[in-house]
Design a protein around this nucleic acid. Structure first.
Lengths: 328, 328
DNA sequence: TAGGCTCTTGTAAGCGCTTACACCAGACCC
DNA sequence: GGGTCTGGTGTAAGCGCTTACAAGAGCCTA
């Protein structure tokens, strides 16, 4: 019984007599033989693994995306390498290293600059982006942040008659936030209004708190704060409370992401739910298409869902209405 | 210039003239040469990667552990493969597959049965356990759940005079919960009381809700619910509310893990904070010791911290006292 | 029955590294 | 000046698979 036959049986190739196959299978069982993934990879020149590069893992967003991705990967019998960049200096170097260990890479927002992504593309590495715009021919998966931002802003503008909304968040820090800001501004424009400049801040609760404190201390106090994510919104609610303002009576607050905590704020948070798992799963499918050689892998965008609770001024505090933002 | 020299330069071995080294480095730079991790691994018979097996990624606990682990791994220039078992049938098979792609494995609670772990140990695979008891000579990293359970229960028993406490959670489902239940029971014993049987339920909010509903509907209503984790505790608070009971006036509720949401319940949750990142980092160090051949890698247990807020009956609802559970 | 098929199995040449060992200069000693 | 070291460099044999190709067995057709 030769090594080639074993290899053929192992990989379920045709051209092996059932009898021999049985024999080989028995031997494998008895010897508890496990093929070396390293040797196999070297000979067949693929790793049987893909990588995912994410900025961090605080909050449920990235964890959920990874979960959606992981499901698809495991279903294909592949492995998954992860790398959190955590705004490390050497992130690009780490990614370049990672790329040597996988057949393809999912690169998420706020991890490495575009030129690193471009370099990967030039080297022929299959790459899919998530939560950031496409780069050259490299496809991206995103949720419709722009559309949901328009939708949410119009809800505030027309549904509640707000006229002094302020956007909290820094569009330059993340493509998602940029899209949300763009939608916010666009909704204003469509309504014949001008959106005030965003109050810049980073992503965490404390950042939102500080930014909201600044915004709410302006002489012309905003009547609503549209925050770039739920964490900032939570901070903003805290800031309002600290200033003796009631949410939503004195100031409306909205977020993004619908993290579990959103339902537990004193005034249940109106927010936008993202199809996090589906984003991850879609990215995986796209990446495997790319690895499989399909060159027609196109960017995709997934619908989001407006979750209307109490903090926007809609009165009920427990149940929540959901509205899907239709494809455009 | 021979291939061996390049290899030597690459790996920073001594015995290369500075001049040659410079030459090789230049060539590497110019040709943008990257060594094949596959070939290198095959020849040197190690993967330069470790794996982590976790049950799921909902809630911040596992994400934080992974983060702590990841930091150590990346600092060593190694890669990290992840596998979520999600109570899949084929989990053991997947783990056995994963093990062929790494130099060592961190196996967390509720993923694969002990005999799989034992089998790995027998095959000489470096394995570290987390959140589950040691198996044979395989070391485990754990937080002092037992001790903090005693501490928490005594706080309730002696600090607040409770006499009808009920434990919510199923000790058979997770080693952590088992330890907590054991501490709960032990504290009762020390106080000359008998702990009532635990109200069995799974880990999620809804499970805690149902279990608490059952417990609180008993003729002799408990005056306090000690829940196996924060999610269950949140469910329990909901159940109390639904029954028209106030927390903590009518019933005290406590959790475990100190998830972010714990601070946002109507009555801020008294809970136990775990050193999640440190757990992950410690496990990584232990695993690398093991891989490095050190056979004196011992199980470790890390201190936890009792976070006293309002839901146990201590009145203040915003600041929180922390008490570290000292090593025993 | 010889020639040509098809189908199964075996052989051996890589895949791109690491590493034991051979080799070759010099430096050094007597 | 020939021998012995020493340390830098090259050679080649793996590592454990995949895979092109060769070889052999069985069957059909003329």
């Amino acid at each position: 019984m030769s090594i080639a036959t074993v290899s053929r049986v192992q990989r379920g190739l045709h051209g092996v007599t059932p009898a021999t196959r049985e024999l080989v299978l028995d031997a494998i069982e008895n010897l508890r033989y496990r093929p070396s993934s390293l040797a196999r990879g070297l000979a067949s020149r693929h790793h049987g693994a893909t990588g995912i590069v994410f900025p961090d893992l605080s909050g449920p967003y990235y964890a959920d995306v990874i979960l959606g991705y992981e499901g698809e990967v495991v279903a294909r019998g592949e492995s998954l390498l992860i790398l959190g960049t955590h705004e490390r200096e050497e992130s690009s170097e780490l990614v370049l290293d990672l790329v040597g260990r996988v057949d393809g890479l999912l690169v998420m927002a706020r991890t490495v600059p575009d030129d690193v992504v471009r370099a990967l593309g030039r080297d022929g590495v299959p790459v899919v982006l998530l939560g950031r715009p496409p780069v050259g021919r490299i496809p991206a998966v995103r949720e419709r942040s722009f559309e949901s931002a328009v939708h949410l802003t119009e809800h505030l503008l027309h549904g509640h008659g707000h006229r002094r909304l302020v956007f909290i968040g820094d569009p330059s820090l993340s493509p998602d936030v940029a899209e949300r800001w763009r939608g916010f501004a666009d909704a204003h424009r469509r309504a014949g209004l001008e959106a005030p400049a965003p109050v810049l801040c980073r992503f965490r609760e404390a950042d939102g708190h500080d930014a909201a404190l600044r915004a709410l201390s302006e002489p012309a106090r905003p009547s609503g704060l549209v925050c770039g994510n739920d964490e900032m919104a939570i901070g903003a609610c805290g800031a309002a409370e600290r200033l003796g303002l009631r949410v939503p009576a004195d100031v409306a607050v909205t977020g993004w992401d619908d993290i579990p905590l959103a339902r537990f704020l004193p005034s249940h948070l109106t927010t936008v739910r993202q199809p996090t798992r589906e984003l991850g799963a879609t990215a995986a499918r796209l990446l495997f298409d790319l690895i499989g050689g399909s060159s027609l892998a196109e960017s995709e965008s997934l619908p989001t869902e407006l979750v209307v609770r109490a903090s926007c001024g809609c009165t009920r505090n427990d149940d929540s209405r959901h509205q899907e933002v239709a494809p455009t």
